Simulated scan of single mutants.
Amino acid sequence: MVENIVIIGAGHAGGAAAISLRELGFSGSIRVIGDEAEPPYERPTLSKEFLSGADASPVYLANEDRWSELKVTLTLGVSAQAIDRDARRVTLSDGSQVSYDRLVLATGGRARRLDAPDYPRIHHLRTIEDARTLAAAARPGARAVIVGGGVIGLETASTLVGLGLSATVLEAGERLLGRNTPADAAAWIAEAHARIGVEIHLGRSLKTVTERPGGLTVGLDDGTTLDADLMVVGIGIIPCVELAEAAGLPTAAGVLVDADYRSLGDPDVFAIGDLALRVFGDAPAPRRMETWAHAQTSARAAALAILGQPGELEPTPWFWTAQCGHMLQIAGDPSVADSVVARGDGVRLYLRAGTLVGAACLDQPRDFGTARRLIGKALTPETAADPRADLRKAAA
């Protein structure tokens, strides 16, 4: 009998898991433990609307009254220090202990940092407090250097330019968005940044950062130096696996879980969101997914498994990013495609053996919605390539 569920991590995934458990009919005790003082919130606006000041607060998953109505206990401003799996007990940083029948790990990751002094003018963007600190430093006319040409770095560059700063992006790879975005879509974003004046250095890595009166001096591997008033580091996250490792759970670049997000080392422990590294069936090499959609879907899948209810058909993976006044949306896995269909200027369809496996759309929400539904179906390339034709008609 499952009567007591503890969720470690009060971010998006952890909060979504608590809500899903109630929506699915669980009536026992739910406690969500988080080291931030804030209740569960979504992270996407931190680099956009919240950073810019357009939104006065981040997007909270629920307000105080709603958490009370759901009878979810939020234990905030404390962290989990140890898990005793034999006793099914978690020790917290304030010295208290909480017991569980099922444990959900949703600790996500922490911002990866440079191998450099942690000067006050160097910023990261992972939490509400990070965003508030950066917003306070983002004065119009200031020069910002952004390290990392991924989603966070580029969204931040776009927002800072909108606030009246200049922005220079340093990317060690040969193109932007190299980890999770196909080349055509990355080129669209590069062009959008060029139009708003963002300076981009590809194939360049950071060698030195030194503090000077009023700013920073940034040295690149080719000998170039840049002056900056502030720096933002967006080079990914490090999964917070230490708690799981200390408890003897199997980990790699995340906590190893099965298709239902159950730990491979303990059937009473689950891991979700950015922390989960799924290993199951004939799936390709396991990898983590750091998206808003995965926080939602992994939370619900784990809740279903905890309650012994049948799993649901897993939705096609997808994510979006808003930059420079444009919306880029990616669905499926374009990396496994063997051919690409260009559908006008802002849509690319990725096929493998004639079957749609991925899509990238720039400011084309209708085609994106259709493409998401067609993932896994064979397409007629000639029909799919005609932007005047209904994309649904391309499905064989």
Rank of each mutant, 00 (worst) to 15 (best):
V2F: 12
E3R: 15
I7R: 04
I8S: 03
A10R: 06
G14E: 03
A16V: 00
R22D: 08
G25R: 14
I30F: 08
R31E: 10
I33L: 05
D35Q: 10
Y41W: 14
L46A: 05
S47D: 01
S52L: 05
G53E: 06
D55T: 01
D55V: 01
D55S: 05
S57D: 06
N63P: 00
R66L: 07
R66G: 04
S68P: 09
S68W: 05
V72S: 02
L76K: 08
G77L: 11
G77V: 13
A80S: 04
Q81M: 12
L92T: 08
L92I: 13
S96I: 03
Q97A: 15
V98C: 06
S99G: 14
V104F: 10
R113I: 11
D115V: 08
D115H: 00
A116H: 10
A116R: 13
A116T: 13
A116I: 03
D118F: 01
I122Y: 07
L125Q: 01
A131H: 02
R132T: 05
R139Y: 07
A144K: 07
I146W: 01
I146Y: 02
G150I: 02
G153F: 01
S158F: 07
G162N: 02
L165P: 02
A167C: 04
A167V: 04
E171Q: 01
G173L: 02
E174Q: 00
R175W: 00
G178H: 07
G178Q: 07
A183G: 06
A185M: 03
A192N: 03
A192H: 09
I196K: 03
G197V: 07
G197I: 07
I200H: 00
K207Q: 09
G215A: 00
G215R: 02
L216P: 01
L220Y: 02
T224N: 01
D227V: 02
V233L: 02
P239A: 05
E242G: 06
A246M: 11
A253M: 11
D260W: 15
R262I: 11
D266A: 13
F270A: 12
I272M: 10
D274C: 05
L275G: 06
L277S: 11
R278D: 09
V279D: 14
R287T: 14
R288M: 11
E290H: 04
T291F: 10
H294L: 10
S298K: 14
A302V: 15
A302N: 11
A302P: 15
L307V: 13
L307G: 14
E312G: 13
E312V: 13
L313P: 13
L313D: 14
E314Q: 15
P317T: 09
W318A: 03
C324V: 04
M327K: 14
L328S: 11
I330W: 04
A331T: 11
D338F: 14
S339D: 15
V340G: 00
V341W: 07
D345N: 06
G346S: 14
Y350M: 12
L356R: 13
G358W: 15
A359L: 12
T370F: 05
R372C: 11
R373I: 15
I375W: 10
G376E: 09
T380A: 15
E382G: 03
A385S: 08
D386R: 02
D390P: 10
L391W: 12
K393E: 08
A394Y: 13
